[in-house]
């Protein structure tokens, strides 16, 4: 059983997956942030691999990626940093990013190096289902990594079921059709979350895009297993140099724990 599966076995409500961009705000802040997130109460970490052309991201996450690249972050550098991640980081870690850098690194080598570093899963929003089934899925599985597909309010029930069958770990429910960081109201999305809940999916569902405060957190959690927070946390990190304090304060403002 994967580390992600174990997490959801012990906790399946109000699960908190925190996104941060590797190499942001500093090239060497990656592990410091991961430790702060774990201490602050995050249940999972989604580590963004910076890319020059992040199609699904809004301005805040784009800017963090641009800064990380300026700081000198590369996939090779990231795997070097992640060598020291375990055992200090005990919670599940996913890598999130785009296909092009991964293809350049070599897809199989990428999976192997991620698994060797103790990474648990991958989120590659521009890896299509067809290519997953015919080419890449087998490589991902061979290295024991979970793979998380996205669904949106526009995804049909039938397609949600197909995506669920191919995913492992959890399913990423994009809150509304948008890029990351739009201030949308989660109250309006209850019908969509309920629809997902009613499909009897094999994977837990985490809601991402637009979760930014206590209210959106509670609204998103009502019919799902938890949330993914990115933009709001990146903004919180910009507030001051003390990463641990900023992280603790931010997570507390969401979970009140």
């Amino acid at each position: 059983m994967s580390r992600i599966n174990k997490l959801f076995e012990s906790k399946n409500k109000e699960v908190l997956n925190m996104y941060c961009t590797a190499g942001y705000p500093r090239l060497d802040s990656t592990l410091e942030i991961m430790a702060a997130l774990q201490e602050g109460g995050a249940d999972l970490i989604e580590l963004g691999m910076p890319y020059s052309d992040p199609l699904a991201d809004g301005p805040v996450i784009q800017a963090s990626g641009t800064k990380a690249l300026e700081n000198g972050m590369t996939l090779a550098k990231l795997f070097e940093q992640l060598e020291k991640m375990r055992p200090a980081i005990r919670i599940p870690v996913l890598l999130m990013g785009y296909m092009n850098p991964v293809l350049q690194y070599g897809f199989e080598k990428f999976c192997a190096d991620a698994a060797a570093a103790g990474v648990d899963g991958l989120i590659l929003p521009d890896l299509p289902m067809y290519e997953f089934e015919t080419e890449y899925g087998a490589l991902i599985r061979r290295h024991g990594l979970d793979f998380v597909f996205l669904v949106t309010p526009e995804t049909s029930d039938e397609r949600v079921r197909r995506v669920d069958a191919l995913s492992s770990g959890f399913l990423y429910a994009v809150s509304s059709s948008s890029t990351t960081g739009k201030d949308k109201n989660m109250g309006d999305q209850q019908a969509y979350f309920k629809r997902l809940q009613g499909l009897g999916l094999k994977n837990p569902v985490l809601v991402g895009f637009g979760i930014r405060d206590r209210q959106t957190f509670l609204d998103a959690c009502r019919h799902t297993n938890g949330v993914i927070i990115g933009t709001a946390y990146i903004k919180a990190l910009d507030a001051g140099p003390d990463i641990a304090a900023a992280t603790r304060t931010f997570i507390h403002s969401i979970t009140r724990k």
Partner: peptide, 21 residues
């Protein structure tokens, strides 16, 4: 360029060794 993915299709793409366009 080298094979890569840009703007939704796999093609040849001018990029760095790290896959940045």
């Amino acid at each position: 360029g080298r094979p890569g993915v840009l703007h939704g299709s796999k093609s040849l793409v001018m990029q760095t060794a790290d896959g940045q366009v």
